[in-house]
Design a protein around this nucleic acid. Structure first.
Lengths: 307, 307
DNA sequence: CATCTGATG
DNA sequence: CATCAGATG
């Protein structure tokens, strides 16, 4: 499915709706992402030499309104992915800023019941065959966490996985309920067509995926339970695209707390992933972590595939 | 009492205490008050030719932490008053930023029970004989609104008068309880020594004191009840220093809502006053409204006296 | 249209 | 150390 590069930028679900409330005036803070000098081209190919024909990107934007004010969306134009996903939009659909509707993409938005919390978005150049929201479980689907887009040859899923919270108040929900149910959801999709799933999975899988493994064994995102949950997802027939290609690569992170200049010191976590069905893993061409791109406490991640 | 210009900057009530919490990093916003070119000297004198020997200034700072980040305190150094008062500090005593302790002044802080709400401060070059907090009425004294400093020849009072609120939820409290009790408090002081009172009195007294009298008759700060309360205060033996000197002066305001560029259009209210005992009104030399000084939605006001 | 807090991450 | 909401002005 090499997507038709059509220029219809209309939004699939009413993202052009009137705003209830105006966005705040941009702060005088400088626009943070300056991606103008970056080279996002790539000649990456599969092991058997097929060049990529689809580019995907995912970014936890930590508030899409703030991200737009910081000119974060300029990254999307520069990266030019076929599909771009955002997590933690923290914004009701009707309040998504106009500038978040990027020319050339169909945009799909999901938010939860609680204002300013969670929320995801999916942009696609090609219009999906269908778009669905949630994972078909009432219990999980009030927080705007999962969007699924069906294409001819695959399902594309973006997820913002529940954070276990400080003091781990939601660890049991996360690891005993969400993780198994989300895994089942993906397995069911995978039984029909291959799956590409991306997003902030709120777990650093192995010690190699976090700067300070020792001191974080009881921190949300690095507990044994959460790490085990990710292992079980992979065992269910999926691969972590970045780690598949770069099994030994250290110090590659996609999140740094804003506190204590963690990003400057690269004291980070790899929380943002592309996870793909094992049956299409040979289509992986490259998996990239755009750690230089500013605008959030996470950076974008990229997957190049030949499908 | 021409104050001894001593340089002891110690704070009268522990304002040097350790902070529980650090102030946020200053935003990148430019420092707003640039008072460096302003001439705050004055040759003002009483009607019978006595030059002022005391300068007082008062400013509703709308959050002392934000005000300090905006370099609002540079105004104090430039104005160089003998006593400077602030209202709406919105800050517990222990969290007052270090930069709010201005060299050459004793500082006294009061905050209420509710964090981030109300709060007043008083700076004095000369150390007062005593400083008291509140108006001796349990009912009123939980919101950090009044500081009284006793000097040799007068009492100095600063007040942040309760706002009646949008939809006037606290109008009855304000006009039936606070206003009479505060008036009694001042009358009792005045029975002992003359009083200079300043602050955000949260009322525009007459039509001349507000840009849009017609449309604000039901707005907090311009209801008949609040205006009447101020009239009754004056009838109890006090004068509005600014209006005493400038009975016909129009378009002089000390507050403009941040909304709709009201300040740019001078759509304002005169809410900040110096009110002095009638018996010392002949000591008034000048009363000034520093409407050019930025850093809050209010501007500073000044009183020059010979006492 | 600002200031705060408190929840959240 | 950020985001956002909601209270307050």
């Amino acid at each position: 499915m090499p997507p038709k590069r059509k220029s219809d930028a209309s939004s699939g679900d009413g993202s052009g709706a009137k705003k209830k409330k105006l966005a705040r005036t941009p702060s005088k803070r400088e626009s943070i992402p300056d991606v103008s000098g970056n080279d996002y081209s790539s000649e990456a190919a599969t092991k058997d030499g097929k060049k990529w024909n689809l580019k995907f990107s995912s970014w936890n934007v930590n508030g899409i309104r703030a991200w737009v004010e910081k000119n974060g969306h300029s990254y999307v134009t520069a990266e030019d992915p076929d599909i771009f996903c955002v997590q933690e939009t923290k914004c009701a659909k009707d309040l998504i800023p106009d500038d978040a509707n990027i020319e050339g993409y169909h945009a799909y938005w999901l938010s939860g019941d609680k204002d300013g919390y969670s929320g995801t978005g999916l942009y696609s150049k090609q219009e999906p065959l269908s778009v669905t929201y949630g994972i078909d479980k009432e219990e999980h689907d009030k927080e705007g966490r999962v969007i699924t887009a069906e294409f001819d040859k695959f399902y594309f899923v973006t997820a913002y996985v529940p954070n276990a919270g400080r003091g781990l108040p939601r660890l049991s929900y996360r690891s005993e309920k969400w993780d198994p149910d989300f895994r089942e959801y993906l397995k069911n999709l995978d039984a029909k067509k291959p799956v590409v799933m991306c997003g902030d999975l709120n777990v650093a899988h192995k010690e190699i995926d976090i700067a300070n493994p020792k001191s974080n064994k009881k921190s949300a995102g690095f507990t044994p339970q959460e790490r085990q949950g990710f292992s079980e997802l992979l065992e269910a027939g999926f691969v972590d695209a970045f780690r598949e290609l770069y099994p030994e690569e250290t110090k590659k992170y996609s999140y740094w707390t804003y506190m204590g200049n963690a990003r400057g010191k690269n004291v980070g976590w790899r929380l943002d992933y592309f996870v793909v069905s094992e049956k299409i893993k040979d289509g992986i061409c490259d998996s990239l972590i755009r750690s230089e791109v500013m605008g959030s406490d996470h950076c974008p991640v990229v997957l190049l595939m030949n499908i």
